[in-house]
Amino acid sequence: MKSYRKELWFNIPTRRAFVNITGQVAEALAESGVKEGLVLCNAMHITASVFINDDEGGLHHDYDQWLERLAPHEPVDRYRHNDTGEDNADAHLKRQVMGREVVVAVTGGKLDLGPWEQIFYGEFDGRRRKRALVKIIGE
Score class of each variant (00 low, 15 high):
55 D>P: 07
58 G>A: 04
69 R>F: 09
89 A>W: 04
87 D>M: 10
53 N>A: 06
75 P>N: 11
80 R>T: 12
47 T>P: 07
64 D>M: 12
61 H>M: 01
88 N>H: 12
93 L>D: 02
57 G>T: 12
62 D>T: 02
57 G>S: 14
58 G>T: 02
62 D>Y: 00
89 A>G: 03
52 I>W: 05
81 H>M: 06
92 H>G: 08
77 D>V: 11
46 I>Y: 09
83 D>H: 14
51 F>M: 12
59 L>G: 04
97 V>R: 01
70 L>Q: 08
72 P>K: 04
51 F>V: 11
58 G>C: 01
74 E>Q: 11
77 D>I: 11
44 M>A: 03
52 I>Y: 12
71 A>C: 12
81 H>T: 05
52 I>S: 13
57 G>E: 15
44 M>D: 05
80 R>P: 04
47 T>W: 06
96 Q>D: 13
46 I>R: 13
50 V>F: 05
58 G>N: 10
89 A>E: 05
59 L>W: 04
90 D>N: 06
52 I>R: 13
89 A>F: 04
56 E>W: 11
83 D>A: 15
64 D>R: 05
81 H>D: 08
46 I>C: 15
56 E>F: 11
57 G>A: 14
56 E>S: 07
82 N>T: 05
51 F>R: 08
45 H>M: 11
94 K>N: 00
64 D>F: 08
72 P>T: 00
66 W>G: 06
95 R>T: 13
58 G>P: 02
44 M>H: 01
57 G>Y: 09
51 F>C: 14
61 H>A: 07
82 N>M: 09
78 R>K: 14
63 Y>V: 06
95 R>S: 15
74 E>L: 12
96 Q>I: 13
65 Q>D: 03
83 D>R: 15
63 Y>E: 01
52 I>D: 05
54 D>T: 10
94 K>C: 07
92 H>N: 08
83 D>S: 11
96 Q>S: 15
81 H>V: 02
63 Y>R: 00
79 Y>D: 09
91 A>W: 09
84 T>A: 15
65 Q>V: 07
80 R>Y: 15
82 N>H: 10
44 M>G: 00
56 E>Q: 14
60 H>L: 09
76 V>W: 07
69 R>E: 15
75 P>S: 11
62 D>M: 03
87 D>I: 09
76 V>A: 13
92 H>V: 05
84 T>R: 15
88 N>L: 06
67 L>Y: 01
62 D>Q: 05
67 L>H: 03
76 V>I: 13
45 H>C: 13
89 A>L: 00
80 R>M: 12
50 V>L: 04
77 D>P: 04
97 V>H: 04
61 H>I: 02
44 M>P: 01
50 V>N: 07
84 T>Y: 12
50 V>H: 01
83 D>L: 14
91 A>K: 10
88 N>E: 10
49 S>H: 05
95 R>I: 02
81 H>G: 03
60 H>F: 08
87 D>F: 03
47 T>F: 06
64 D>E: 15
48 A>G: 03
96 Q>P: 00
60 H>K: 08
82 N>C: 05
50 V>S: 08
57 G>M: 10
47 T>L: 05
87 D>P: 03
45 H>P: 07
78 R>F: 11
58 G>Y: 01
87 D>A: 15
77 D>S: 15
80 R>E: 14
48 A>S: 12
79 Y>L: 08
95 R>D: 00
52 I>H: 07
82 N>A: 12
73 H>T: 11
88 N>D: 15
66 W>M: 10
69 R>W: 07
96 Q>L: 14
66 W>S: 07
88 N>F: 09
94 K>E: 13
